[in-house]
């Protein structure tokens, strides 16, 4: 059976992880490679790296990071942040990323989704949507959540799927950083409307939150940052708990033989 995916997300600035991570025995909490390998060893199913500055000066560092990751990380990884042209996507993919995440550029130039999918395959194009409750529905925001677009989230999700996006990374701005649960209503509404996988993001704080996102929320994958970075929960601990609740997750052979946290 296809497993539900658990995806840690790392924010990157000038080639370094920001906000930091509190694994006890890290040599360098800001080194994306060291953190990636840690999550890899913990059976994370994929990793997402978001370049939060995404300035042109940093683009080279991000490419270098993608190349370093690709040499040692044998799970899929996505890089996003400020990508706005086919050339940007080409550079990241050539450096070794499996997927790119596009957000603002997808809204300002929806043709980028279609052109990206045509050239690199749908599997490569993840469209990230930042959404906020607005009346009875949800509105899409761009520019890191600073700019409302007036676009309805569900209609936008349908459009990006139609244009060939391979997955939707759906972040609820209302829930993000609150750790009091994913927005199940918007996640399930979008997941039911589109044929492509939906990755729920924003609000995961407890095992129950992840469980709800993957069941009632109909998400195909869940993304989280701080709960993993600061050790509130571990990826293997979360996976074992979900497994006990009947959610299909990928347990590695070591995890099946080890019942520890």
């Amino acid at each position: 059976m296809l497993a539900k995916r658990i995806i840690p997300c790392l924010d990157i600035k000038a080639g370094r992880v920001v906000k930091g991570v509190s694994f006890v025995d890290l040599r360098d909490a800001g080194d994306p490679l060291e953190l990636a390998m840690r999550y890899n060893a913990q059976s994370a199913d994929e990793l997402v790296f978001l370049d939060i500055t995404a300035s042109h000066e940093n683009r080279g560092l991000t490419l270098e990071l993608a190349a370093r990751l690709a040499r040692v990380l044998f799970i899929p990884f996505t890089i996003g942040g400020g990508l706005s042209t086919l050339e940007d996507i080409h550079n990241i993919v050539t450096a070794g990323a499996d997927k790119v995440s596009i957000n603002t550029a997808a809204v300002t130039d929806p043709g980028l989704i279609s052109r990206g999918a045509e050239r690199f395959g749908s599997q490569c194009i993840v469209v990230a949507m930042d959404v906020k409750r607005e009346g009875a529905g949800w509105e899409v925001y761009t520019h890191g959540g600073r700019r409302p677009t007036g676009i309805d989230a569900i209609q936008w999700a349908e459009e990006v799927a139609r244009r060939g996006a391979g997955e939707i990374l759906l972040t609820s701005m209302d829930q993000d950083g609150q750790q009091n649960g994913y927005d199940l209503a918007v996640t399930s509404a979008i997941s039911s409307r589109v044929q492509i996988p939906v990755i729920a993001s924003g609000g995961g704080g407890t095992i129950e939150h992840f469980y709800q996102a993957l069941t009632a929320g109909k998400a195909d994958a869940v993304l989280a940052a701080s709960v993993f970075h600061f050790g509130q929960m571990t990826v293997p601990g979360l996976k074992r708990a979900l497994h006990r609740k009947g959610v299909p997750v990928r347990l590695t052979p070591e995890m099946e033989h080890d019942n520890g946290g």
Partner: peptide, 10 residues
């Protein structure tokens, strides 16, 4: 079914 299949399968 969601098609494509994307993810880890046994």
């Amino acid at each position: 079914l969601k098609v494509p299949q994307i993810g880890w399968n046994q």
